[in-house]
């Protein structure tokens, strides 16, 4: 009996104590997603820091894996905005956006979905994806383009792939890379291994680089990996769409043989920020909406911050704030 009383008093007193100190806070609030790759985190952190500095926002950030789930969470209003979506990888964009994507005045993409997610504007980052091999391997074997790969496939083989070479492939099936399909269409005798997470792919690549072993890695740029390790792209054929309506779901792409996607490389990705339409229609968030329309972070700036964050292991907020302090000319123009 004594025990139960002890416990009940403990709980009760804690509640009481919390009650005396709890307090409310009144600021303009938004809820943003923290992306699951560092580039995306930095882009969003730049936006968040500027909104907090210049417009007095208090922004709550939540780590959230990218993919269709994130788009649905934004459409449902669970989150207010997310940053740097890469059109090549997104599945939900053509279903949920209904707007043109404009980069420096040019229309670089247009969507005709149901409009349940609002395209806030370009993030500025232009992404590029390719297959990469370390420079020491390229020089040793004299590999210039993807056409030379078959001659050296044995060097790239592992226990699991047997005679074929191994590609550390696009890690997540939901990104729709169609790596194995591409390799087969191009006649590259490699096996694409999906490792499930970016971390897994990079961990293996990093370890292999440290041991100076040959390996081929799918990766996108800008990425911190290129800041630390010297990699060469294999220059996949230039991106070609197969048909006006390309794929929407995995496996649901048109088979054009070698004429178009996925027998080619990726398109240039004009990345974009996106948010909940209801939130950004509110007059109190007009400033934020305007800001997102103007925002345009350059690749080179993100790459510099990537090196600080991922190689020098510094805190993201610290790095972003330092960049904002030192380069006001680069972002003041987004405020208009």
């Amino acid at each position: 009996m004594k025990l139960s009383k002890k416990i009940s008093t403990l709980i009760l007193s804690l509640v009481l104590l919390i009650g005396t100190f709890g307090h409310a806070n009144a600021a303009k609030r938004l809820h943003a997603a923290i992306a699951d790759w560092t580039g995306g985190i930095i882009t969003c952190e730049v936006a968040v820091a500027i909104l907090e500095r210049e417009y007095g926002y208090k922004i709550k950030q939540t780590v959230f894996p990218s993919g269709t789930g994130l788009w649905e969470a934004i459409a449902a209003g669970e989150l207010d905005f997310a940053c740097e979506s890469w059109p090549s990888y997104a599945e939900a964009d053509s279903v949920m956006l209904n707007e043109d994507l404009i980069y420096e005045g040019k229309v670089v993409g247009s969507y005709s979905g149901d409009g349940s997610v609002d395209l806030l504007g370009t993030a500025g980052i232009i992404g590029l994806s390719d297959y990469w091999i370390p420079r020491y391997a390229a020089e040793k074997f004299g590999i210039k383009t993807w056409k030379d790969l078959n001659n050296h496939k044995k060097e790239f083989a592992t226990i699991e792939t047997g005679n074929r070479g191994r590609l550390i492939a696009c890690p997540v099936a939901g990104w729709n890379c169609h790596d194995q399909k591409r390799l087969d269409l191009l006649g590259i005798d490699f096996q694409a291994d999906e490792l499930g997470t970016e971390a897994a792919a990079i961990a293996e690549a990093k370890a292999a680089y440290m041991r100076k072993e040959p390996f081929m890695l799918y990766l996108w740029s800008p990425h911190w990996f290129f800041g630390e390790f010297d990699m060469v792209g294999v220059q996949l054929p230039d991106h070609k769409v197969c048909d006006p309506d390309t794929f929407t779901e995995a496996g649901n792409w048109k088979d054009c043989g070698t004429k178009g996607w996925p027998a080619t490389g990726w398109a240039k990705d004009y990345t974009m920020n996106y948010g909940n339409p209801a939130t950004f229609a509110k007059p109190e968030h007009a400033d934020a909406k305007k800001f997102f329309e103007n925002m345009s972070l350059q690749n080179i700036d993100q790459a510099k911050m990537l090196v600080e964050v991922d190689i020098k292991k510094r805190d993201v907020k610290e790095v972003v704030n330092e960049w904002l302090d030192n380069n006001p000319n680069k972002w003041k123009s987004w405020l208009k």
């Binding site: 789930g69 099936a173 997470t197 971390a199």
Partner: peptide
């Protein structure tokens, strides 16, 4: 284990969730 390259049912769960 799909987080580090496991296959089988676990990967199915992940793929299902990635596409919601």
């Amino acid at each position: 284990t799909p987080l580090i390259g496991g296959k089988g049912l676990g990967l199915e769960v992940f793929n299902g969730l990635a596409r919601s």
